[in-house]
């Protein structure tokens, strides 16, 4: 998919960005995950899991709202 979206010469740069996104995701996942004990202590386990419920739901809704625009931007991509 990455290779379909961007031209050949840009692909290295884009792959770098894609990996960077995963790296940031992983780092923040572990940092937040490590907070499980303190969140449980100060709030509750439910609150801890709600963080990971609400954040992706919001991200998901945003990308669905953007769907028509994304389609336009990606015109011609199979």
């Amino acid at each position: 998919m990455v290779s379909k979206l961007v031209p050949g010469r840009m692909i290295a740069f884009m792959f770098g960005m894609w990996y960077l996104a995963i790296a940031i995701g992983n780092k923040s996942a572990a940092s937040l995950g490590g907070m499980i004990d303190s969140v449980v202590k100060d709030y509750s386990l439910s609150v801890f899991f709600l963080i990971f419920t609400i954040v992706p739901v919001v991200a998901g809704i945003i990308i669905i709202i953007l769907n028509p625009m994304m389609k336009k931007l990606m015109k011609g991509v199979e």
């Binding site: 996942a29 995950g33 990971f52």
Partner: peptide, 14 residues
């Protein structure tokens, strides 16, 4: 994608 992995990768820690 950042937000996907931020949650999904809880599998390794929390």
């Amino acid at each position: 994608t950042v937000f996907f992995w931020m949650s999904f990768e809880q599998g390794a820690t929390s």
